[in-house]
Amino acid sequence: MARVATGRAHDLVGATLWSVVQSGSIIVVLIGWELLARSGLFTAFLLPTLSSVLARVVEDATSGLLFFDLAVTLYRAVLGFAIAAVAGIALGILIARIPAIHWLFDPIVSIGFPMPKVAFLPVFMLWFGVYDFSKISMIVFNAIFPVIAATVAGTQGVDKHLVWSARSLGAKPGEILREIILPAALPQILTGLQVALPTALIVAIVTEIIMGGDGLGASMIRASRYADSPGVFAGIVEIAAAGWLVIKGVEWLRRRLLVWHQETQGLATM
C-alpha cells in the first residue's frame, strides 16, 4: 500500500512537471510569435503581433461578441455531438446484436469511418441549405462514425464469462444489455465519444467557415473578407481555447465515470 501511495505522489509530481514543460513550450511559441511579428520580417497584415491579437480577443469578450459566437458554435457542436452519441450508441448496439442489421450497416461503417466526410458538405448544402439544420446534420454525419465503431467493438468484445456470471446469479436475458454489456463496454464507448466530440467541434467550425451564419468560424471568415488580420488570428486563438476546454471537460468526465478502471486506479497491487 505504501508503495502505491509513493507511486501516486511520484505520478503527481511528474504530471505537474510535465504540464509546466508542456505549457512552457506553448509560452515559447507565443513569445516567438510576438518577436517574429515585431522583427519587421512580416507586415502586420500577414502576421499581427500577439499583443494586438490578444487585445482583439479581450475586445471581443468585453463586447459580448466572443461569447455569442462561442455559444452559437458550441450549441451546434454539442447538439450534433449529442445526437451522434445517442444514435451512434443505439446503432452500434443493434449492429453488434442483430445479424441483419450487421449485414446492412457493417460495410457502410467500414467505408464511411475512414472517409473524409466533409466531402459531402456541398451535397448537404444542396439538400438542406446553409442554416442550422444543415450544419448540425453535417456534424452528426461526421461524429457518428467513431461512436458506432467504438460501440460495436466494445459490445462485441465483452467477456462472455461476465454475461454468464450475471445469468447464473439470476439476471434475466433482458437485463444483460443494460447491467453487463454497456458498463463493460463503457471504456471503449467513451473513447469513441472522445474522438467524436473534437470532430463535432471541427466540423462545426468548418461548416461555419463555408456556410456562414454566426459562430466562431463565420466570424473568422468575415474578418478575413474584410482583410481584418487581427480578427482572423483572434479567431484561431479563440477556437484553440474552446477546443482545449472541451477536451479537458471530456477527460474529467471520463475519470469520473471510470473510477473502477485500471487506467484510473494506477497499477493493481501485488
Binding site: D159, L162, P183, W260
Partner: peptide, 10 residues
C-alpha cells in the same frame, strides 16, 4: 471461473 469474471465496474 478460472479468471474470476468479477464485474470490474462494481
Amino acid at each position: 471461473f478460472q479468471h474470476f469474471a468479477l464485474f470490474p465496474w462494481k
